[in-house]
């Protein structure tokens, strides 16, 4: 059964996303909305990992399979500078969040197949958050794009 591989991936991806949110939050302290909301999102990632713990205890976390590991998007360790910095950093987060979103979706499918109600519950609770994160990133990037692409220097 390969589900433990995916649960491991998910746990790792949430950790990566949390630290990436924090990197971007800290790096863009001059944009208070970005700064505070990304911190809130990072805490949600922490909570998702908490929620996954009992599931991991049951299935174990298979972090061996090399192939699967290539799927994990790299996290962010620093922010950019310059007029496009905010947009590019948010866009990187957008990729990470979408990666997680679709991973949750697949784990959710498996949870249904396995009739694992506990895992289904966790998926339900966490999927909504990544969907919200996607919407917020879109809202914010939509706002930033014209100014950054047309007038910023």
């Amino acid at each position: 059964m390969k589900l433990p591989v995916y649960i491991g991936l998910l746990d790792e991806a949430e950790a990566t996303l949390a630290s990436s949110f924090r990197v971007v939050a800290d790096g863009h302290g001059d944009e208070p909305d970005v700064h505070f909301i990304l911190q809130t999102f990072a805490k949600k990632c922490d909570a998702h990992r908490e929620a996954l713990k009992p599931v991991i205890d049951r299935y174990g976390e298979d972090i061996e399979g090399e192939e699967e590991h290539r799927l994990t998007a790299n996290g962010m360790t620093e922010v950019r500078s310059g007029p496009l910095a905010l947009m590019l950093d948010l866009q990187d987060l957008y990729v990470l969040v979408n990666h997680i979103d679709v991973t949750w979706m697949m784990v959710g499918q498996a949870a249904k197949g396995a009739r694992d109600t506990e895992l289904q519950g966790v998926v339900e609770q966490c999927e909504g958050d990544s969907e919200l994160e996607i919407r917020w990133l879109q809202t914010r990037m939509k706002q930033a794009a014209p100014q950054a692409l047309l007038v910023a220097e």
């Binding site: 001059d30 944009e31 208070p32 007029p83 939509k142 706002q143 794009a145 014209p146 007038v151 220097e153």
Partner: peptide, 20 residues
């Protein structure tokens, strides 16, 4: 109508960054 309207503190931020 292609972007959300810019609120006051964001307007001042764009001034700070020199784009307004």
């Amino acid at each position: 109508d292609w972007a959300p309207p810019t609120h006051a503190l964001q307007i001042f931020r764009y001034v700070e960054q020199g784009s307004i």
